[in-house]
Design a protein around this nucleic acid. Structure first.
Lengths: 121, 121
DNA sequence: CCGGATCCGGTCTGATACTG
DNA sequence: CAGTATCAGACCGGATCCGG
């Protein structure tokens, strides 16, 4: 019995507060960065992995599963005929864009060192 | 080169993307919950600690230091004459409210199990 | 009692190597 | 290319302790 990775969320996630509830899914260093990348139009494992922050592949893999299970992203056949899978935001995922935008505003205004461009590559 | 624990932020935090930059500070399960609590008017260690999510005292303590160092909160003498310290949001901290609100909207719309009230106690 | 600090076991992260 | 496997070390979190 290999006892693989825990199915999905870290804790029992019985939080009733919507903020807490949201943070149960998004409250970590990487998840929203992946959402950001998909928002920017990236769709493939390789592209996420190549981001400037350098997410490790095992973490990326696990987060993608979690995002798909949470219905924030979906895994689809790649549009360009390549046989590799593509990931894209669902409506639920797209609904996170205002949150991302508010973080951009905050980062630009209050954190120096934040450049003007989002995810420039 | 021993290269011990990094002083405070988890990584080098040279991220130039404002989202990544923001997540370097807020990207964990607890930090935004503390900001939420302060937004709701709570000011004391004990109050944060008594929240429904049950943040451990050592984590709370560390996060408070981090928030103060990041200028998101400030530690002030308690208003009511008690000798215990009080914490409150700075302007930089208050600027996070739109982010919190967008998370509330998202949680309410997409995460069932999220009740209508924020941090009801 | 309150605001933390310390201790410590277990979990998770993240760098890297590996596989289909 | 898209992930899995591995594994040491970082971090979390529960309990306990302590000074005021």
């Amino acid at each position: 019995m290999p006892k693989k990775t825990i199915p999905h969320n870290r804790k029992t996630q019985r939080s009733s507060c919507p903020i807490s509830c949201t943070l149960d899914i998004l409250g970590d260093k990487w998840t929203l960065l992946i959402v950001r990348d998909m928002w920017m139009g990236y769709t493939r494992f390789k592209e996420f992995s190549a981001g400037p922050e350098g997410i490790p592949t095992n973490i990326l893999s696990e987060r993608l599963v979690r995002l798909v299970n949470s219905n924030i992203t979906e895994r689809v056949a790649s549009a360009d005929g390549s046989r590799h899978p593509a990931y894209q935001l669902t409506n639920k995922g797209k609904a996170l864009i205002p949150t991302l935008e508010s973080m951009i505003d905050w980062g630009l205004k209050w954190e120096d060192g934040a450049s003007k461009k989002v995810a420039k590559r």
